[in-house]
Design a protein around this nucleic acid. Structure first.
Length: 265
DNA sequence: TGATATGTTATCTT
DNA sequence: CAAGATAACATATC
């Protein structure tokens, strides 16, 4: 679901729709997902929108920040002035941001996981400092050092947001397939060449997925500009690898893991 | 009907 | 104590 490429795509869309606009008032429909304090942003302007890991940060005038985490089923819908939200999504609306130009941004959450919180700059920095480095910015040397220092299996390790951010169950499996590495291998056992391949493939897969605006798996996750990377998935939830070998499915860290025992060693 | 899917965190275990 | 492993969260879908 939303991993780095999907969140990046959503950020680009939000940027276009929100930056420079004023938020007239906010309706909070589910206080568990959306902090009631978020109402306080009424009257402020959207200055900037950016991504860190799988989080969306919306900067508002007056040095206030909305930290949005979609978790699995959170998504936004932008409704132009005079238009209505698709009734299918209406029942999952947890917050409504009414903009001064008459348009509206809704935040929907099916399983009520994610969160939207209003933070000061200090609070935001504190939250973000808990996260590992960005995979598209980290150097190979740093990456190698991190991986060699870990003892668990590679797949669970690269999905750990304290180790490296943005990689979830889909892209972890894809990157490991293209790198030719068995997902259950222990980090410390990987050779220099394998770590190099993994580093390159994580970047390649993420960048390619960003180009395709992410992966759209579940029909209810559809939003404007939903991506089509699912057409390019090698192993995730499929039966055969691109070379037509039958895939194996195991569980690592409580997550379904598909891999090819012939292509991945 | 119950297993499965998902990202993160709290909690248990080594 | 630290790091790894696992359960818990919610709910639609198969």
């Amino acid at each position: 679901m939303p991993e780095l490429p999907e969140v990046e795509t959503i950020v680009q869309q939000l940027k276009k729709k929100l930056v420079g606009k004023k938020i007239n008032y906010v309706e909070v429909l589910d206080k568990k997902v959306v902090d009631n304090d978020v109402k306080k942003i009424s009257g402020s302007k959207v200055v900037k929108v950016w991504r860190r890991a799988k989080s969306i940060i919306i900067e508002l005038s007056g040095k206030k920040f909305l930290l949005v985490h979609l978790r699995m089923t959170g998504h936004f819908h932008y409704v132009s002035k005079g238009k209505k939200l698709d009734p299918f999504f209406e029942k999952f609306v947890v917050a409504r941001f009414n903009l001064s130009d008459g348009s509206m941004l809704t935040h929907n959450s099916i399983r009520l996981f994610g969160s939207i919180r209003l933070l000061s700059l200090e609070e935001l920095e504190k939250e973000l400092s808990k996260l590992g480095p960005e995979p598209l910015e980290i150097s190979f040397k740093e990456f190698e050092k991190i991986i060699l220092g870990k003892k668990g299996n590679v797949k669970t390790t690269i999905m750990d947001q304290k180790v490296i951010v943005g990689i979830g169950n889909i892209y972890a499996q894809e990157a490991l397939y293209w790198a030719g590495i068995d997902p259950s291998r222990k980090c410390g056992d990987l050779s220099f060449d394998e770590i190099k391949k993994l580093y390159n493939q994580i970047k390649r897969v993420l960048l390619l997925a960003i180009k395709h605006h992410g992966t759209t798996i579940e029909n209810y996750a559809h939003i404007e500009g939903a991506g089509d990377f699912q057409k390019l998935l090698a192993v995730y939830q499929s039966k055969k690898c691109p070379k037509k070998h039958l895939l194996k499915k195991i569980s690592l860290g409580g997550r379904g893991t598909y891999y090819c025992s012939q292509c991945q060693k």
